[in-house]
Simulated assay, not measured.
Amino acid sequence: MTFTSNHLEICKGTLLGGHYKVEGFLGEGGFGIVTKCCNTKTNEFVAIKVNERNPEILQQAKMEILILEQLRGLDADRCNIVQWNDFFIDGDCICLNFELLDQCLWDYIEDRENHCLPISEIRPILHQLTNALSHLGSVGIVHADLKPGNIMVVDRYECPIKVKLIDFGLACPASTVIPGDCVGTVGYEAPEVMIGSLFNEAIDMWSLGLVAVELATGYPFYPGRNDYDVLKFIIQTQGQPPDHVLDSDETDYHIMWGREKIQNVFVSLIKEMLALDPNQRITPSEVLHHPFFNPGLSKSSPCTDMSSTGGQNLVVSQQPSTADNLPLHQSFNQT
């Protein structure tokens, strides 16, 4: 099998850096490709990100290395970020060596019934990702491209689930942000990014809020083909003033919860994550102390795993709304 990406042509069996044998292909992007490799010296499997020979991409790779160097002081496992090993040059390509993880959150969701997750999994995933953002903030780094595709499940068979944040290709120091910088992915960008305003770490919290909704429903909260579509949907849903109440009838998404109390607490958290004013958006530290993560909540309002209930505790539904079956956007308007 040969994988060609513009100026890259790599096939299974190719040796990268002299001793990393390509065993498979894990993904691709505007930067190049990610390969699964075996270190022929240690027999250890790793993920190698091979950047294309494009000058602009190479410059971006150098910036990613600078960011990763800043993160070396953090404990990758404790901070829920991918372990970066080192980098090497192969020909004209910059190659980044990372620990090998299992599968991205998009694929993990796709493998599940109804393409969404139960509260028993959503809670630890959000807690771990918030933990990652908290530690990134401690060293002044904005990830700038948080989405399910950049969140990896360490081992899909491990319980409780563990996730790590990957891909720092668009990450930047908060102190060097320039208004209008092109960061993020359509559908996950914060409003201030889409309109070209100055931004900071708060854009990652907005993205995490959208990821949370997608985990719960199986659908993107603000779908769109481009920033204009998404921004239009946000304004229609939330209005322009930062303190506008969320209220929209334009979505067909409904969620069903095992207990209304859990739903209300979850929705209150999402509302704070998706505050239009970044200065009013909830911070990682505040999220970690939010009632949604209170152990007593799950005890007082138990919610069993969907795999054992056929998904009845939390599913996407087309049925008319009832007390236990509320449109997600509409439920944001409830106090």
Results as ranks from 00 to 15, higher is better:
residue 277 D to W: 00
residue 107 D to A: 07
residue 183 V to G: 10
residue 114 N to W: 15
residue 250 E to D: 11
residue 12 K to N: 14
residue 206 W to R: 02
residue 5 S to I: 04
residue 66 L to V: 14
residue 87 F to P: 04
residue 168 F to P: 10
residue 42 T to M: 06
residue 333 N to A: 15
residue 158 E to M: 13
residue 205 M to A: 00
residue 50 V to C: 10
residue 139 V to L: 01
residue 72 R to Y: 06
residue 218 G to E: 01
residue 319 Q to F: 11
residue 245 V to Y: 03
residue 215 L to P: 08
residue 204 D to T: 05
residue 319 Q to T: 12
residue 217 T to W: 00
residue 60 Q to W: 03
residue 159 C to A: 15
residue 7 H to L: 02
residue 199 F to V: 15
residue 262 I to E: 02
residue 161 I to T: 04
residue 194 M to L: 12
residue 88 F to D: 14
residue 296 G to I: 06
residue 40 T to M: 11
residue 242 P to M: 06
residue 193 V to T: 04
residue 168 F to C: 09
residue 155 D to Y: 09
residue 73 G to S: 09
residue 80 N to Q: 12
residue 41 K to P: 02
residue 288 L to D: 01
residue 292 F to M: 15
residue 335 T to K: 09
residue 31 F to W: 04
residue 154 V to H: 02
residue 286 E to D: 12
residue 278 P to V: 08
residue 141 I to F: 04
residue 138 S to G: 06
residue 329 H to C: 04
residue 241 P to W: 02
residue 38 C to I: 13
residue 6 N to P: 05
residue 243 D to Y: 10
residue 184 G to W: 00
residue 224 G to S: 06
residue 195 I to N: 05
residue 207 S to P: 03
residue 56 E to M: 02
residue 231 L to Q: 04
residue 19 H to Q: 07
residue 298 S to C: 10
residue 97 N to W: 06
residue 307 S to M: 08
residue 14 T to M: 00
residue 232 K to M: 07
residue 10 I to W: 02
residue 175 S to L: 06
residue 74 L to Q: 13
residue 149 G to A: 06
residue 211 V to I: 13
residue 312 Q to A: 11
residue 128 Q to Y: 03
residue 15 L to G: 05
residue 160 P to F: 04
residue 300 S to N: 10
residue 224 G to V: 11
residue 299 K to R: 10
residue 90 D to L: 05
residue 283 T to V: 13
residue 23 E to A: 15
residue 320 P to K: 03
residue 73 G to N: 05
residue 66 L to I: 14
residue 76 A to I: 06
residue 127 H to D: 05
residue 290 H to M: 11
residue 148 P to M: 01
residue 316 V to K: 07
residue 267 V to A: 04
residue 251 T to N: 11
residue 83 Q to R: 08
residue 17 G to T: 12
residue 54 N to G: 05
residue 63 M to I: 12
residue 101 L to W: 13
residue 2 T to Y: 12
residue 292 F to K: 13
residue 255 I to A: 10
residue 102 D to Y: 01
residue 173 P to G: 07
residue 332 F to G: 05
residue 209 G to Y: 02
residue 194 M to S: 08
residue 269 L to A: 04
residue 149 G to W: 01
residue 220 P to C: 06
residue 265 V to R: 04
residue 122 I to D: 02
residue 37 C to S: 10
residue 219 Y to R: 14
residue 9 E to M: 14
residue 272 E to H: 10
residue 233 F to L: 13
residue 110 E to P: 00
residue 317 S to G: 02
residue 169 G to Y: 02
residue 140 G to H: 02
residue 320 P to L: 03
residue 161 I to Y: 00
residue 250 E to W: 14
residue 112 R to Q: 08
residue 79 C to I: 11
residue 148 P to L: 00
residue 58 L to Y: 00
residue 111 D to L: 11
residue 14 T to G: 01
residue 232 K to V: 05
residue 326 L to F: 09
residue 189 E to G: 10
residue 126 L to Q: 12
residue 256 M to A: 12
residue 154 V to D: 01
residue 239 G to H: 11
residue 263 Q to V: 14
residue 259 R to L: 08
